[in-house]
Simulated assay, not measured.
Amino acid sequence: MRITEIDLEIEDIEWYGIDENGRIAQFTSGGSKMVPEFICESRESLDLVSEFFENFNPDIVEEVTFSEEASKYPRKEYLQECKKISQKGLYCFDISDEEVITGGYILICKPSYELLISDLPETIQSILLNYKMPNINFMNNKIISIETAY
């Protein structure tokens, strides 16, 4: 089933992307409607990937690095959730009210150990290959601008 424009208005969509080097990031839309077409195409695919990462527990808990922009998010509970995501090897991006205007997601934190698409089971790889973001490098880009589905 497709994720609709109305869904994006009322839901805080957590979605994923793959950069040009196979790194993985989680993005949180904050109900902003700033979600790319490749995510809106299939809620079922997104749900499978989300469930995989929610249940994914690497053997080693890695340290993470918070960006300077993370200070815009004062809630400690939220930053702890971001930390948990990056401890799994994923980059964590979010969109604040300021960035909704420009369509840019800001880096909240990054992992010390990067999980790559090649490290994942084939079923998840096959979905994530559709989430590739050309000319994007999560390690170097502190702001990621996207073309939205709606």
Rank of each mutant, 00 (worst) to 15 (best):
E14M: 04
E14G: 07
W15V: 06
W15Y: 13
W15Q: 04
G17K: 01
I24F: 00
Q26N: 10
Q26R: 14
F27H: 08
S29R: 05
S29Y: 04
G30I: 06
G31V: 12
G31M: 11
G31L: 10
G31S: 08
S32T: 08
S32K: 08
S32P: 10
K33V: 13
M34A: 09
V35P: 09
P36K: 01
P36W: 00
E37W: 09
E37G: 06
F38R: 03
C40H: 07
E41L: 14
S42R: 04
R43D: 04
E44I: 10
E44H: 02
S45Y: 06
D47G: 04
D47V: 12
L48F: 08
V49E: 00
S50V: 07
S50H: 14
F53W: 11
F53A: 06
N55H: 11
N55P: 05
F56S: 05
D59K: 15
I60H: 02
E62Q: 12
E62V: 15
E63N: 11
E63W: 05
F66L: 03
E68K: 15
E69M: 13
E69V: 09
A70C: 08
A70T: 14
K72N: 07
Y73G: 01
P74H: 02
R75H: 12
E77G: 07
L79P: 08
Q80P: 01
E81I: 13
E81D: 10
E81S: 08
C82E: 02
C82Y: 03
C82L: 08
K84T: 14
K84Q: 12
I85Y: 01
I85G: 00
S86I: 10
K88L: 07
G89W: 02
G89M: 06
C92M: 13
C92Q: 09
F93D: 01
D94L: 10
I95N: 07
D97V: 12
E98K: 12
E99Y: 15
V100C: 10
G104Q: 13
Y105F: 13
L107F: 07
C109S: 09
C109W: 08
K110S: 15
K110T: 08
P111R: 03
S112P: 01
S112H: 04
E114N: 09
L115G: 03
I117F: 00
S118Q: 09
S118Y: 07
S118F: 04
D119A: 05
E122I: 10
E122A: 09
T123S: 11
Q125S: 05
Q125K: 15
Q125L: 01
L128W: 08
N130G: 02
Y131A: 00
K132F: 12
K132N: 05
I136K: 13
I136F: 03
I136Q: 06
F138P: 01
F138D: 01
F138L: 03
F138Y: 02
N140R: 14
N141Y: 04
N141L: 12
N141M: 15
K142Q: 13
I144E: 00
T148F: 03
